[in-house]
Design a protein around this nucleic acid. Sequence first.
DNA 1: CGCCCTGTTGGGGA
DNA 2: ATCCCCAACAGGGC
Length: 302
Amino acid sequence: MPELPEVETIRRHLAPHVEGRVLERLEVLDERWCRPLTPRQLADATDGRRVERLSRRGKYLVFELSDEVFLLVHLRMTGTLLLGPGARPAHARVLFTLDDGHELVFVDPRRFGTGELALGAEARDAFLAARLGVEPLGDAFTTTHLRALARGVRAPIKGFLLDQKRIAGVGNIYADEALFRARIHPLRPAGKLKPAQLDALRAAVVVSLEAGIAAKGATIDDFRDPYGVQGSFQDQFLVHTRAGEPCPNCGTHIVKIRAAGRGTYYCPKCQPAPRVRRARAPQAAAARPVSSPARSARTSSW
DNA sequence: CGCCCTGTTGGGGA
DNA sequence: ATCCCCAACAGGGC
């Protein structure tokens, strides 16, 4: 999972293994991973350089190599970084060979993951600044900051939370979890939330992310396992992927809709709808399950 | 077996 | 400013 907790967990567990090691060889098996660069160009820029630091910004893992060469890795939907050596997993896309005999394998069945190169801290910062907003687990993510971000925004809060350019690192699961904790309906216009609601949401985002990090940190303790660890992480979800199940607060059935193009789960009682919505078509007045074939009921018209 | 839908993300076009 | 579509693939339902 490329959401912040996963990336954060990988960073924490992986950093001690890779920092200070020399990256002897970067072998890109799927050229799509580093486009528009060729695997050759990427390897020329990275091979033989030391990994000074492994850090994170939003959902990007940042490998800082010597001479201010930065490799920016994004896991997207299905990417994983495994520490070997071990049996070669299916869907291995990139091999990092380290000078101590370890190797990192980037595994990605769906091939959405990316690796980008930035030469110099300035280029790195420009790349990240163009894509990412405030770090939700940093000091800058204050109630004042969130209120300022939301001011005047008419789009639904769900999409607002998913916009990495506003808040960096909140993914689909954690957006749902945070909205549930803050008791806010996912389709409420961000700019119409009361200050107290935004304050609650700010806290809920932090709690949700930290809960995910704690759960994953507890299940993954050995990155030498080339197949990773199958934890029961999703058991802790409060509402996400729990359509039809009882709300942990009130027992009402969790509902699934589509918001910002993503499956969105919420409790219709704990997270009351903003208002009676204007229907574009007579039968499109209420939030309907996404399983309905009537795709014309888009959230954008609400 | 095949078809259709879904999905932990983000960029580009509309 | 905002939203839909798409990238590429696996897995499940029918």
